[in-house]
Amino acid sequence: MALVSTAARGHLRIRPKVKVQLGKQARREELAFYGFVSLWIVGFVLFDAGPIVASFLISLTDWAMLGDPSWVGGANYERMLDDATFFKALRNTIYYGVGSVGLGVVTSFLLALLLNQPVRGIALFRTIFYLPAVVSGIAVAILWTNILHPDYGLLNAALARVGIDGPGWLKSPDWSMPGLILMSLWGVGGAMVIYLAGLQSVPQHLYEAAALDGAGTWRKFWDVTVPMMSPVIFYNIVVGFITSLQSFVLILIMTDGGPANSTLVLGLYLYRHAFRFFDLGYASAIAWVLLVVIMAITAVQFLAARFWVYYEADHAR
């Protein structure tokens, strides 16, 4: 939380460059610093910065994995403009991101409010709601493929009980995405725990002051809880979007983008081109567009944050 609130306010000040002769002691400390962080600097160059630059260069080539790359300039990006499947994947990515993050934020916030109530057995309840967030991965993918099965699945059986003829979920182009979003809601425990910690750190005196002013539960919620929690909500939205992109591995296993590309997301489209069609140039172009998309979305979120996220420190100044 500290991470985003500092970054959001642009408070990570970089000291102005001042040319000073460092003393012997300071120079030794500097040397020690670079010694300690050298591992990460190597890792950063090898596994992060290097690959990002490399993927841009590769995106300007035509490169089948086994052959040699040949320079094609912006051809991969031009091809993308005519690629209806790419745009479908882009739309699906945003659909999944907005759906899972939007519903996830509401669900996890409401759960956190419930779990912040002083009732008996609350520790057990917290564990139960948090548990699914821990067990992500293929076992969960297999489990949910079963639960969402149109004929034998648990969900449709439950819906049939109340007289609803359940949809085809992962087998239906219209319902596959809602099915995946539903599955993602099972794992809202992570965000929930973060809200819970936030709720517990809202100063009690604010509620007391509000009560003295005659505020009821509802007013206290909107005028104290929500503004005080807005940085946490903001954080969960930003991080939620980035992690929603990574769910493509589960999607790969569960539907492989189908039916009719209805669950094809950008990460999966990239994976297909890279590791099935061995079209490294095009895959890298997709990677770069994905990077730009996520940066744009994050930037928009940070800009919008000025209007709704409340930072106490800003007001105290």
Binding site: F44, I242, I294
Partner: peptide, 22 residues
């Protein structure tokens, strides 16, 4: 440190192809 924080924001799939090549 700022670079370190920035890498937190990069989705993994962006770097998988060059990593694989490496």
């Amino acid at each position: 440190f700022l670079l370190l924080l920035a890498t937190l924001m990069i989705p993994r799939e962006v770097t998988i192809v060059p990593r694989f090549l490496l």
